[in-house]
Each structure stands twice: as structure tokens, then as C-alpha cells.
Nucleic acid binder design. Structure first.
Length: 502
RNA sequence: GCCCCCAUCGUCUAGCCAGGUUAGGACACAGGCCUUUCAAGCCUGAAACACGGGUUCAAAUCCCGUUGGGGGUACCA
């Protein structure tokens, strides 16, 4: 039978990067095994529901290259009020793939469980439940539902009055399951709460919905975060009660922040959208995430893997047991590696939106500007770690610069008079050079350095500051050539004036 | 509190299952080379088996305990 896995986000916000790593494992496993990767929307929490995050989640997956074989279809997306539903509709034979579209199914299963004695109705008020929990805590007992309604006569609560349906967990014995990563995990039934399966608003809780959907969608492997381990016995009980075949469970370790701190949904954990905005390449992020908690092993020392290589080598059974800390340092390095490996034209295309967002070049990029960019890219390719870095590194090509203050011009240790001389002589040289190509500029400037008896650092540093306004810039001769003679001479003159004014 | 999971350089990890390694690699860090700045590249360095007991000729590897970390404990997922 074909492997079927799923990512089932709840549209209450954008998934944090730890969740995304788990999605990567799911996707890699599906592709490796030639199976299906399913996207299911778990919108059963009506309080925290934010429909607008559905397309954001989908957009993020697409950007990362995590395509899904089955997922919400056109009509259900339209009913959810998603704009551009056509753009995201995939559909599939086991839909609908949005849980709010499957309500009758959950209710039916819940009623079945009540009928066979595996579940019961409960109309305890939230206040009473809270009181019970507080009392238990005060006594130093684990907070659990006291099963008040479990022992009521079967007809004590009418199906028509507001109530929830709870799982009737066996009071004794133990529930166990085999986990791909952890091996056998054992829970005493006495410690398992009578979990609510169907809420009073008619929506299922995660526990009911996940079991029902995974069953009917023929999911074979449940690959999810470690945080689900404690609720897995409830799911196992449900599978047993319903007589359904169990999927393979695989609980992958969580991802923490660099300090080892918790990576909770709202703790500023970065989302795919944020990484994208910060100038990370999707292939770099994918590569990095795949290596967070997994390594090919067998003495393999390669760390840069193409998408195809990751699929080929990924092994779910080799995923680590211990949680992994996210490292921006390593991601940055990897992003730089990927940026350097791009063809200049490809890099140019990816850089374009960042230059445009910064207002440095017009939105439809004119052909002339593109030619300039084509000359700039090779100069900066090995100097940026993020696509966003290009803005600060190249802005002086597109905007006028304020003449640098004297102290910056004199940073190389020259006195004002000497610096003025350097600038004046440089202007003479550059005014008379036959053409303004990189190779034509360099020899006479080097000759000038020798003639003046100064160091290249002193002279070129001064020219750099004068023409770019920065102490750090792309390689000087290429930069001057792209700037062109007129602007270079003007900036040199302006700098000279700065020193004179002094 | 109770339940569950986890433990190799600062970080990601290889090695563990099938005991014998100078415990390997990468990021970051330090020093050097190259060099017009910054990068990139190259070379070198520092850096780990959490602790305590077993088992064994031999333990990072197997067992137990301790400590530490993480997760769960909702009509959230």
C-alpha cells in the first residue's frame, strides 16, 4: 500500500519554524517513498480561527517547494471565503479537506461511540470543571475530569440539550503504542483523562477529528511533533474502540530557539513569510531544516544537499531523539553558500524585488537598469548572506550620496591637504583615461599610488569613501566603472570640497 | 504535583543498535595567508562523551540510578 502522510495545520496563525521542520520531514518521507502528501485544514477551534491564514500557509508551503497531492478543493475554499481560491485548490478523492466541512461525520462517529459504550454525554459547566481542577490541584492530585457524568444513567442527558461527548477511558490497564523514533511508549490508563471528543458547539476536538480523518483519508504514517505524545494513547483507544487499523506513529523532537528556549507559537518564532522577507532562499531553508534533527549518517560529511539529494537520502528512522536548537548562524552561512551557487542571472531575478521594495529601482525594471544590475551582481554575489543585504551594499549606485564628512575621508590617516591632493590627482587621471572600463581604470590608478608614495589602502580607501560614501563597498574598480565617469568625477570633487571647507 | 520524552564540542551532528576510534565533520569563535575595503577562499587552533554506580579484559556505546533539559496535564491544536 502506498504511503500517505499529511500536514494538518490549524489556521490560527502562521506555523512556526519548528512545525515547518516537521512538515519538511513529512514531505521528504512522502516523496522518498513515492507516496502522497496531504494538506488538511484543522479549523475546529472557532475561537482562534483566522481564515486569512489559510492562503498564507499555502503560499509558504509553495514557496518552500512543499507541494501537496491532496488538499482543499475549489468549492470548500470558496465557502471558507478564501480569495483566489482557484490558485490554491487541489482537491482529492477523500475530501473535503477542511474539517469544518466534515462535521456530520464526526458527530456520527461520536454518537456511535456513545451507542457502544465507549463514550458518554457530559453537561458539566466550565465553572464546575474549573472548581474540580482547582480542588484537585490543592490536594496535590493531577487535574483530571472527575467523571461525574460517566456514572449518570444513560438517558440522564438528552441528545437535544447542550452537552459534550467524552471518551470513556478504561480505569485500569495500560495503553501502549510503537513509535518509529521512541520505540514502545507505555501509559497507565488510570492517568488518562476522559477527553472531550465533541464540543458543545458541535465541533470535534483535535483528538476525535484527527483519528477520524486520518482513518478515512487512509493516512499510513502520523508524523508530528513530540508534543503530541501524551495525547497519543487517547487516539490509540479511539482506534481500538472503532476497530480501525492504526497508522504508524512517529513523534519527531521539537525545535527550540538558539538559546534552547521554547519555540512557542507566539514567542516571536519566525514563520516562512518572515524568512522570505529577510532574504533567505527557499532551497537554503529547506536544506537547513532537513538537517535539523536528521543527518544522513554513515560517515557522510556533506551538508549541502539539493532537493533531489535530500529526497534520495532521507530516512525517517534516522531522525534524532533529542530536541534541536535553531541556529541562525548556520542558516546564514548556508544561505550564503546557496547565493554563491546561483547563476548571476538567477540571482538578479531574485534580487530584483528587494531592490524595488527599497525604492532603489522602478517596479517594472527598465532594460537599461537591468543592464546595470547585470554588471553589479557579480560584484556582490559573494558578499551577501541575505538577499536583503544588497540594499545597503549597492544603494549608492542608484541614489545621490551626501558628500562624506571630512573625518570619514581622512580615516586612512592622511591629512586634509594630502587627501585633497589625492582626490585632485585621481580626478585628473580618471578624466583623461581613454574609456571607463574596469581594466582601463586600474593601471593608471595604481601608477598614481606609486607616484604619490602612498599605500593602496590609503588611496583606494579614500576614493572608495569619496565615491560610495562608505568604508565598505564592492570592489573599487568595478564600482567606479559602473558609476561612470561623470558621477565619479562629481563625487570626487564634492569630497574635495568637504576637505577644503574645513 | 503527576505523566511522558530526551542527554557527544557554545550550536547542528557522525560514531551507539551488532563494546576496542588520536571521538570525525559543519556553523560560530581565535590566529595566520591572500588582499584596495568587505567578503569569499585556503591553513592552523581551541572546543564534547552530564554525573555516579554496575556488566566486561575493555564502556561514548549495554543496564540501573541521579542530575539537568524538554513536552503534556483545556469544550487549543
Amino acid at each position: 500500500m502506498s504511503v500517505r502522510v499529511r500536514f494538518a495545520p490549524s489556521p490560527t496563525g502562521e506555523p512556526h519554524i519548528g512545525n515547518v521542520r516537521t512538515v519538511v520531514f513529512n514531505w521528504l518521507f512522502a516523496r522518498k517513498m513515492g507516496g502522497q502528501f496531504i494538506l488538511r485544514i484543522e479549523d475546529t477551534d472557532r475561537v482562534r480561527y483566522q481564515p486569512e491564514t489559510i492562503p498564507v500557509i499555502m503560499e509558504g508551503l509553495r514557496w518552500l517547494g512543499l507541494d501537496w497531492d491532496e488538499g482543499p478543493g475549489l468549492e470548500e475554499l470558496q465557502r471558507a471565503g478564501i480569495e483566489d481560491a482557484e490558485r490554491y485548490a487541489v482537491g482529492g478523492p477523500y475530501g473535503p479537506y477542511i474539517q469544518s466541512e466534515r462535521l456530520p461525520l464526526y458527530r456520527q462517529v461520536a454518537e456511535e461511540l456513545v451507542a457502544v459504550g465507549w463514550a458518554y454525554r457530559c453537561n458539566c459547566s466550565p465553572e464546575r470543571l474549573e472548581q474540580v481542577r482547582q480542588a484537585q490541584r490543592a490536594r496535590g492530585q493531577p487535574p483530571m475530569y472527575d467523571r461525574h457524568c460517566r456514572y449518570l444513567p444513560p438517558d440522564a442527558i438528552s441528545p437535544d440539550e447542550p452537552h459534550v461527548i467524552r471518551l470513556k477511558v478504561p480505569l485500569t490497564g495500560r495503553t501502549t503504542f510503537q513509535d518509529v523514533i521512541k520505540g514502545e511508549v507505555i501509559f497507565e490508563n488510570a492517568g488518562i483523562d476522559d477527553q472531550v471528543l465533541l464540543k458543545s458547539d458541535g465541533f470535534p476536538t483535535y483528538h476525535l477529528a484527527v483519528v477520524v480523518d486520518d482513518h478515512y483519508m487512509k493516512v499510513t504514517h502520523v508524523i508530528r511533533g513530540d508534543d503530541w505524545v501524551p495525547s497519543t494513547p487517547k487516539h490509540v483507544l479511539l482506534y481500538q474502540a472503532l476497530g480501525w487499523e492504526m497508522p504508524v506513529f512517529c513523534h519527531v523532537p521539537l525545535v527550540t530557539m538558539p538559546g534552547g528556549k521554547k519555540l512557542a507559537k507566539r514567542e516571536g518564532a519566525t514563520s516562512i513569510t518572515e524568512f522570505r522577507k529577510q532574504g533567505y532562499l527557499p532551497e537554503a531553508l529547506l536544506n537547513f531544516l532537513a538537517l535539523l534533527g536528521w543527518a544522513p549518517g554513515e560517515g557522510e560529511e556533506q551538508e549541502i544537499f539539493s532537493r533531489a539529494e535530500l529526497i534520495e537520502r532521507f530516512d525517517l528512522y534516522r531522525v534524532n531523539r533529542a530536541p534541536a536548537a535553531f541556529s541562525y548562524d548556520k542558516l546564514d552561512w548556508m544561505n550564503g553558500v546557496y547565493i554563491r551557487s546561483l547563476s548571476p542571472d538567477d540571482l538578479l531575478e531574485r534580487l530584483l524585488p528587494f531592490w524595488q521594495d527599497a525604492g532603489l529601482i522602478p517596479a517594472p525594471c527598465p532594460p537599461q537598469t537591468r543592464e546595470v544590475l547585470r554588471r553589479i551582481v557579480p560584484l556582490i554575489q559573494e558578499r551577501i548572506k541575505h538577499l536583503t543585504d544588497v540594499v545597503e551594499l549597492t544603494d549608492f549606485f542608484f541614489t545621490e550620496i551626501a558628500p562624506p564628512p571630512a573625518e570619514e575621508l581622512l580615516a586612512q590617516g592622511l591629512d586634509a591637504e594630502r587627501a585633497r591632493e589625492v582626490l585632485r590627482r585621481t580626478r585628473e587621471v580618471l578624466a583623461n583615461v581613454s574609456d571607463f572600463g574596469e581594466e582601463t581604470i586600474e593601471p593608471p590608478l595604481r601608477a598614481l599610488v606609486a607616484e604619490l608614495g602612498l599605500t593602496t589602502r590609503q588611496v583606494f580607501g579614500l576614493i572608495r569613501t569619496a565615491t560610495t560614501g562608505k568604508a565598505v563597498s564592492p570592489p573599487l574598480f568595478g564600482t567606479l566603472s559602473i558609476l561612470e565617469r561623470e558621477r565619479v568625477l562629481a563625487r570626487l570633487e564634492a569630497a574635495e570640497a568637504q576637505l577644503t571647507a574645513r
